[in-house]
Structure formats: C-alpha cells, structure tokens
Design a protein around this nucleic acid. Structure first.
Lengths: 218, 218
DNA sequence: AATAATTTTTAGATTTGTCTAAATTTATTT
DNA sequence: AAATAAATTTAGACAAATCTAAAAATTATT
C-alpha cells in the first residue's frame, strides 16, 4: 500500500477532523485542504478504491481501519520530526509545523524506527500532542483546560489546542510552555478570564479564549 | 526561484554528468534519469525558461551559473542528510542514498543551516565526497586512487567513486572505510591488481577495478 | 408537501511529467 | 557527396491533482 503525499495529507486531514467533529463533510474537508469540494470528491473516489475510506456518494465518508492505521503512521512521523526539529535542531515550537509537513512524507520506515530511537522514543511532541508508537498506539493522559481546572491546584501544562504562530507567540510572552507548572487563582465570571500564577512570576490574567486552549495534566 | 523535486533531480544529474563527461547529451541524461530522451527535451525547455541551462535545440546544453548554484544547494542538502543518517542515526554508508534522495528536496533553508550546525559543519559526507558550504564552496583535497598511489607510503582513504551497494559491500569485507590508513605494497602489471596493507591486518590483493575506485589523501 | 437553499457530484479543462511514434537534424560511412 | 545511421525534437496522448460551471441529490423552509 503506497500513497502519494497528497493522499497522505487528505488521510491525515480526515483523521484530525473526525476527532473534532461528529460528521466530516466534503465541504469541511475541502476547507481544511484548501481545495474545492469537487476535488475532495475526486480524492474520495481514489481513497475508496484504495480501501482507505468508506464512501457512498452523497452519504458521507469515514476512515476504514486501514485508513486509520495509515493516518496514525503519518501523525507519528509528523510528531517525531517536530520533536527532532525542536529538541535537536533548536527550532522554536511555533516554527516547525510547515517543515514537519514536508518531512512526514519521507517514505522510509527504517528511518522512522531509527529516528524514534535516536530521540529516545518520546511520547509527546513539542506541542504536547501524543506521538503514536510503532504499533499506532497513542498514550493518552487526562487533561483539563485552564477554563475548567480546579482553583489553587498546581498543574503542569501538557498541550495547546490552537497551535497557530499567533497563539504560540502569546504563550511565549506569558512564559507558558509545555511542562510549565502553574495554578489558577481565580476565574472571573464576567468574561471568563482567569488569573494564573507561575512560580516566581507575578500573577497575570489571561482571556477565556486563551484559557480554553491551554491544557494541563490533572 | 522555486523548483520541483523533479526539476532538482534533473539539475543535479546534469551537474554530476558535467563532471564525468566532456559533453552531456540528451541520451546520456535520459539514461541517468531513467526517462526517454523526449522527456529530457521537454525538461530542458522548462529549465531554459527558468534560466537554469543554456540550451539550443540539437546543439546541446550546459548549466548556467544559476543552474550550477542550484545544483550545489541540492548536493549540499543530500550530503548533509547522508552525514546525519550515518553519524546520528547509525545507518551503514551503503544504505543512505535513497533516503537522502528524498530528504534533499525538503525546501526549508533554515532547516539546512541548523542541520549543518547540529552536525558540526562537516566537510565530507560518509562516502568521502565534499559537502559544499552555505555559499556553495567545495573544499577540495588532493587525491589519488590505489592504482596510482606511490608504493609503500601510508595514505588515508578519503572517498570512493563507485558508491553502489555492491562496491560498498566489497569494501566492508576488506575493512576499508573512509579514514582507513593503508599502504600499497606492490602493483602487478599483469592485471593491474594491487597488494595493500592495513595496519594489523594481513596484506591482501584487490583488483584493478576496485583500486581505481578507492581514493586516498596523498 | 412543494419550493428554495445548500451540498455534493459530474463533466470537461488545465498543469506537470511522462510516454510512443513520427519527423527532423546531425553524424558517419561508403 | 549521397546514403545511412544515430541522436534529437515535435506532436499528440495519458495519469495525477486540481479547477470551473453545471447538474443532481439532500436538507431546510415555508
């Protein structure tokens, strides 16, 4: 089973959308891929022929078991490369996405085995997202975002949902990164903003919008 | 100036052939690229439009200065990745070519700067070929192959011309690698074979064919 | 339930890199 | 120098991934 980089990108997009939305539609996928719905239809036929998706015209689509497995391989590669770029090459965590988008399509599976070992078989990427192991198994952890965290309990930042450069720039300013230990002092009902306290730094207020994106291990 | 992976492969092929042959022909390039001559003609027109080659129909072609510069960037990326694969991931030197062929097309120049620094700005790849620096400058060294080396002078293996798996398998068997110190005891005029001596190993005979491919620093 | 709006699909075209077969140009040989 | 051979190019076609515009199916609205 060999797939083009474009096919892999569609497979990965379907995988991610399936985790964010109840139903993944042609239009939604076309928005994610920056293509027109007609192009998505074409690709769905191709992926159906390769037994990657269950698809019936006008009736929607989902990944097959094979499709899911394939997506996990791509996700694994992407996140291992991100880890490499940040922890070995010294990139900032908001700079690595586009390069990893390219690297994830390098085909050698031996390369990924060796890269994984070289990196020390990391379980999480620089954004705190879990890295599937060679069997496709994902280690999950219980997480809550800052808008839902219990008050006055120290927690450790484990992942960030919105990974746009803008968001990461903002987090850098607040000195929040993966592993940062903090606690929520107070939540303001008026606008949902929260006051947080990081060890040795003065307490600061972050908006509800940001709080909802920052997840911690409970 | 942005080039597709295919364009880069043609540019690199022309670059290498120009160093091995007086004149590079359409047919020669098509053999190197595993395509038909007609496809080469198509590509030459495209590369001419991008000012990568000087080309007039039926009159042959050569790389422009821009083409040469572009080729050196690709060669630099290829050899840096080969160095990474061997010295960081533990691949054998005969296993890395195909993976490096893919990695060399990753577009980020920031990636290559950082990779270069991470690797310690190496001057030679695992086959002993020079790695162009970020300006495209190649550090050359005076070399002679085992068929031409002065007798009884210890020399250090610096590169291997034919880099096929078969050749590298053979060199592994003789325990010859880049950096191996050896001397030529005797040359047999009958068939051009040479007796070599590597420190602590019994002297052995290698064929003229092999000797011509193994280069040493004088 | 009929109509309107939305979503999805089809049909036909485009670009990139390739092909085959035929035509053209250059090189070689008699 | 003419004929033949070899190399190169053109012409037209194809697969992959995309597009636009139009048609079909589904969903929502009145």
């Amino acid at each position: 089973m060999n797939h083009t980089a474009t096919e892999e990108n569609y497979i990965k997009a379907i995988y991610h959308l399936q985790h964010l939305h109840e139903k993944v539609s042609t239009t939604l996928l076309s928005a994610e891929m920056n293509t027109r719905p007609a192009s998505v239809t074409d690709m769905l036929k191709k992926l159906r022929a390769k037994r990657i998706v269950h698809y019936q015209r006008y009736k929607g689509f989902t990944l097959t078991d094979l499709g899911n497995k394939t997506a996990l391989v791509v996700v694994r590669k992407h996140r291992l490369w991100e880890y490499f770029l940040v922890n070995k090459l010294g990139f900032e965590w908001d700079e690595v996405h586009n390069v990893a988008e390219e690297l994830e399509h390098i085909t050698s599976s031996e390369l990924i085995i060796r890269l994984d070992n070289f990196l020390g078989n990391p379980a999480f990427d620089p954004h705190g997202d879990p890295i599937p192991d060679y069997k496709g198994k994902i280690r999950t952890i219980k997480q809550a975002n800052l808008a839902a965290l219990p008050l006055k309990k120290t927690a450790s930042v484990s992942s960030v949902k919105n990974q746009s450069p803008e968001m990461l720039d903002l987090l850098n300013h607040f000195q929040i990164g993966i592993g940062t230990r903090l606690k929520v002092n107070k939540r303001f009902d008026f606008d949902g903003s929260v006051e947080i306290k990081i060890d040795k730094l003065p307490a600061t207020i972050i908006s509800k919008q940001v709080a909802q994106n920052v997840f911690c291990i409970i």
